[in-house]
Amino acid sequence: MKRVAALFPLALAACETPPPTAEDFIPEYKGVETKLLEGDLVQFNVAMTKAQSTKDVADYARCAASQYTLIRGYGFARHVRTNVSQEGSIWRADAVYTISPSLPRGLRTIDAEVTAQDCAERGIPTV
């Protein structure tokens, strides 16, 4: 009888969820779609898994916007809006930015070159 009692905790341990590993927290970037809406207004749709918060997904969209701005020959962007959603393990962001050759008015502006460099250092892919 003592043998069965001794094995019971082991049986329960086998059913427990294993503790998270470092890989569980490394984001997987699933791609960026860009769409020129009108003139200097651009929409970025991004998808990723293993985001820790909505900020991670918004940062991915911002990185895409910074590189796109540079590709178009501009130096600055201004954030208009970002909508973030989660379906199962997939996080999505729908972000809109204006791009311009000079620093635009507003509080939510980004220097595309500085931001793209920051994204590269953080390992966040761009367009």
Rank of each mutant, 00 (worst) to 15 (best):
A22E: 04
A22D: 05
E23N: 10
I26F: 04
I26N: 03
I26Y: 04
I26A: 10
I26V: 11
P27F: 06
E28V: 11
E28T: 09
E28R: 11
K30I: 02
G31Y: 03
G31V: 05
G31P: 09
V32W: 08
E33Q: 00
E33G: 03
E33W: 01
E33S: 06
T34A: 02
T34C: 08
T34R: 08
K35M: 09
L36K: 10
L37G: 03
L37C: 02
E38A: 06
G39D: 08
D40K: 15
D40N: 11
V42W: 02
Q43P: 02
Q43F: 00
N45F: 00
N45G: 03
V46E: 00
V46M: 07
A47H: 03
T49F: 07
K50M: 05
K50V: 04
K50D: 00
A51N: 01
Q52H: 06
S53I: 02
S53M: 06
T54A: 12
K55T: 13
D56N: 08
D56A: 06
V57N: 01
A61S: 10
R62K: 13
C63N: 05
C63P: 11
C63Y: 10
C63V: 13
C63I: 13
A64L: 12
A65M: 08
S66F: 05
S66K: 07
Q67T: 11
Q67K: 14
Q67D: 07
T69Y: 09
I71P: 06
I71V: 15
R72K: 15
G73W: 11
G75H: 09
F76E: 01
F76C: 01
F76D: 00
F76R: 02
A77Q: 08
A77P: 15
R78Y: 06
V80F: 03
V80D: 03
V80K: 06
V80M: 09
V80I: 13
R81G: 03
R81H: 03
R81L: 09
N83E: 07
Q86Y: 10
Q86N: 11
G88L: 15
G88A: 14
G88N: 15
S89E: 14
S89T: 15
S89F: 13
I90V: 13
I90M: 07
I90H: 05
I90T: 10
A93D: 01
D94W: 05
D94R: 10
D94C: 07
D94P: 02
A95V: 02
A95T: 02
A95L: 14
V96W: 05
Y97R: 12
T98G: 02
T98P: 01
P101M: 14
S102I: 12
P104F: 07
R105A: 12
G106V: 07
L107W: 09
R108P: 06
T109I: 15
T109L: 09
I110W: 09
A112P: 14
A112V: 12
A112L: 14
T115C: 12
Q117S: 06
D118H: 14
D118P: 03
D118Q: 15
C119M: 08
C119F: 10
C119G: 03
C119E: 05
